[in-house]
Design a protein around this nucleic acid. Structure first.
Length: 375
DNA sequence: AACATCACCAACCGCTGCGTC
DNA sequence: AGACGCAGCGGTTGGTGATGT
């Protein structure tokens, strides 16, 4: 309530300078349901673009930055909400041991999770847990504050301890695999070979039901207690179907192994860098069918909606709706841009070799013992 | 019941990098 | 080359509900 305030923002972040009316009064603080509705409606009808324009054209007295944050961290249809599963937690810890505080890169490997969410989760829950771990005799708990990657050991699935070993991950249950071997994989050749595996992933957002989510946009600060049912698209796990697809289709992996999703950045189209790979359509569609049967609860809470469209509400079981129903979008292109699954809609994934050549490394996370998702 | 403290998390802030002019 | 606009990232803040005293 106090947060919900109007500020003068003459210069702001340097954007939004071409509208004197809007720039004079920019709201800050919590978003109201009306603001959410405006932003959602605009994003659906117009798609993503320049955020300062979005803020202005959507009739929001917010800076573009604020709109972007709200969309990315809360309103985005592909977000998975609710508590982190044990598997997710372990994956976060593991990834943090490798990546450090590169939350966006960690989030890129946790479908439906945002960097902000993971960062908050880390700072509240995980860090505390690591701090309380009495078995950690080799390092200060404060090490977990470091932006440098921590290395961790794991004596069991719930016992996670940072060590002082700055560049290596101690072996987990499997003594044959550690970061030394992982590091060996971090060359270009390994990443290119890994792409043959990685490209077979589908980004989970294709499986969600963004329009159902729109019926559920009050699962936020207005209704946080209710939470959202987990993304049970996975056998005993909570990975939005991504991993189920892996285990279902095998994709060259042993059954039960975990292969991480590609970086989100690798999903973005880049004319110069991308490598378009057409994936097996048959396998993909069967996986979507799997998701249809598993993933019905993600955004199905339809009460008190700003998009209280009964037609949409009745389509909770139709995960292809977003692909077939243009009621809310001006074009398929908008849908693709908006939800970021255009590639997946056409069963196309692209890879971008770049900054961090983690793909080879991440392949080895399949040895992460607690991520054996066999039922 | 009232107050204090804690924990969570949405949102803000400052910075950086990139693209364009 | 430098200025500018913008997107994105990570650190931090502060509101709110839960819990403890």
């Amino acid at each position: 309530m106090v947060k919900d305030r109007i500020i003068n923002n003459g210069s702001g972040n340097g954007t939004n300078n071409n509208n004197n009316n809007n720039k004079s009064k920019l709201r800050k603080g919590l978003w109201s349901p009306e603001e959410d509705e405006k932003l959602i409606r605009y994003m659906i009808t117009k798609g993503q673009g320049c955020w300062s324009d979005i803020a202005r054209n959507a009739g929001l007295q917010r800076c573009g930055k604020s709109c972007r944050l709200r969309w990315i961290n809360y309103l985005r249809p592909d977000l998975k909400r609710g508590a982190f599963s044990l598997q997710e937690e372990e994956l976060i810890i593991h990834l943090h041991s490798i990546l450090g505080n590169r939350w966006s890169q960690i989030a890129a490997r946790l479908p439906g999770r945002t960097d902000n969410e993971i960062k908050n989760f880390w700072n509240s829950t995980v860090k505390k847990r690591l701090k309380l771990n009495p078995n950690n005799s080799t390092s200060s708990p404060n090490n977990s504050d470091s932006s440098e990657p921590l290395s961790i050991t794991m004596e069991d699935n719930n016992l996670l301890m940072p060590t002082t070993n700055s560049n290596a991950i101690m072996p987990f249950n499997d003594p044959h695999h550690d970061l030394m071997s992982i590091s060996m994989c971090m060359d270009n050749s390994s990443s290119s070979t890994s792409s043959s595996t990685m490209h077979t992933h589908h980004h989970p957002m294709v499986f969600g039901d963004p329009f159902s989510m729109l019926n559920n946009n009050n699962n936020n600060q207005y209704e946080t207690a209710t939470g959202v049912a987990g993304f049970h698209g996975f056998h005993g796990g909570d990975y939005g179907g991504m991993l189920e697809e892996e285990t279902t289709n095998k994709m060259g992996l042993l059954e039960g192994e975990l292969s991480l999703p590609p970086l989100e950045s690798s999903i973005r189209r880049s004319n110069e860098e991308e490598e378009i790979i057409i994936i097996n359509n048959e396998n993909a569609s069967s996986s979507i069918d799997d998701m249809k049967s598993h993933n019905n609860n993600h955004f199905n809470n339809n009460n008190n909606s700003c998009f209280n469209n009964t037609t949409e509400n009745n389509n909770n079981n139709n995960n292809n709706q977003v692909l077939n129903n243009n009621n809310y979008s001006s074009s398929n292109v908008v849908e693709e841009d908006l939800f970021g699954f255009g590639n997946h809609d056409h069963q196309v994934e692209n890879l971008r070799m770049g900054e961090w050549d983690f793909e080879g490394l991440m392949q080895d996370i399949s040895y992460f013992p607690s991520l054996d998702f066999q039922v």
